[in-house]
């Protein structure tokens, strides 16, 4: 593990102790580096999880003084609640669509940028702009853009001779409108990562492939994609993790409506805890959600690290 150092044997007791201390410190040196972060994480992340888990086995509200133990009552209640199941389904769909959408757009833009030679640095900056806005403001800005009477989108549509739309009001379009805005906001993150990934690719394999007369598509599929695999997985993982937590954007754009089509788990849990004062049900709902997310991330990790190891 380390390259060092012979300590001369010292005969005294304190010397033996020091030597032991030294050996120990060498053997467990990594814990000195990890411990501060780990302790912080224990406080800021594990404590909340343990707390929520605890809540979910009791009956707790903000205004309760007694907290009877109810075992799985809250879990049963949440699993029986159609609203919860609908919100779960919505969330899975939301994560799938927004992550793949942001990925396709972000990767596409990164590839496109390589064909552009003028003002590339400034382009990069402009392309990153949506990432710099707070999600809540992004949602509000698009509310304003999509307003049925005053929004620019309808103004443009009618200018082009198309019928105006009520994006956020119709059960058929609200979902997709919110997802598109999410993609608009987050594709820059994927773009940033993929752009960096592309700029770090080696040249040699491309040159030899071109000499062999391979088509662009073949080169992309056979060389670019495999080389970028770890980067792609990093980007996907990071985005998936965050997409599950989406709250602000949906909250201000539709608040779950119309007719519950855009309700996500975060919204549901917020309502249950803070509006309906059912802390323990929210706790049970989050535990189930955490389990599902954990499984999904474990699968993604296996792919990611299998790949890195092979590398």
């Amino acid at each position: 593990m380390t390259a060092s150092t012979e300590v001369k044997p010292v005969a005294t007791e304190t010397g033996a102790f020091r030597r032991w201390l030294y050996r120990m410190s060498q053997k467990y040196v990594h814990w000195f580096f990890i411990a501060p972060a780990l302790i912080a994480v224990l406080v800021v992340a594990i404590y909340p999880i343990v707390y929520s888990t605890g809540l979910s086995f009791f009956r707790v509200t903000f205004d309760s003084r007694e907290r009877p133990f109810v075992l799985f009552e809250n879990f049963a209640w949440v699993l029986n609640d159609t609203d919860y199941r609908v919100a779960f389904g919505n969330t899975l769909l939301y994560v799938f669509v927004t992550v793949s959408g942001a990925f396709i757009l972000g990767f596409g833009v990164a590839l496109l940028l390589r064909r552009i030679t003028v003002g590339r640095n400034w382009l990069r900056l402009v392309l990153l702009l949506p990432l710099t806005i707070a999600p809540i403001v992004v949602g509000l800005t698009w509310n304003w853009m999509l307003d049925p009477l005053f929004g620019l989108i309808n103004w443009i549509l009618t200018g082009l001779g198309l019928p105006p739309q009520t994006w956020l009001a119709s059960t058929s379009t609200a979902r997709i409108a919110v997802m598109l805005v999410d993609i608009w906001q987050w594709y820059p993150l994927i773009f940033l990562i993929m752009d960096a990934g592309l700029s770090g690719l080696p040249r040699a394999p491309y040159e030899s492939a071109r000499l062999e007369g391979a088509s662009e598509w073949t080169i992309f599929r056979r060389i670019t994609l495999p080389l970028l695999r770890p980067v792609i997985l990093v980007a996907l993982l990071l985005r998936t993790v965050d997409a599950f937590r989406t709250f602000d954007l949906v909250r201000v754009m539709t608040d779950g409506g119309p007719a519950y089509t855009t309700e996500t788990l975060s919204l549901y849990l917020y309502r249950t805890a803070f509006n309906f004062n059912k802390l323990s049900r929210a706790g049970a709902g989050s535990m189930i959600m955490l389990l599902v997310i954990g499984v999904i991330s474990a699968i993604m990790f296996r792919y990611l690290y299998r790949d890195v190891e092979r590398h």
Partner: peptide
């Protein structure tokens, strides 16, 4: 995977 904790779990 800690990053996936929904903010509501932390908030309470």
């Amino acid at each position: 995977s800690l990053r996936m904790i929904p903010p509501i779990v932390v908030a309470l």
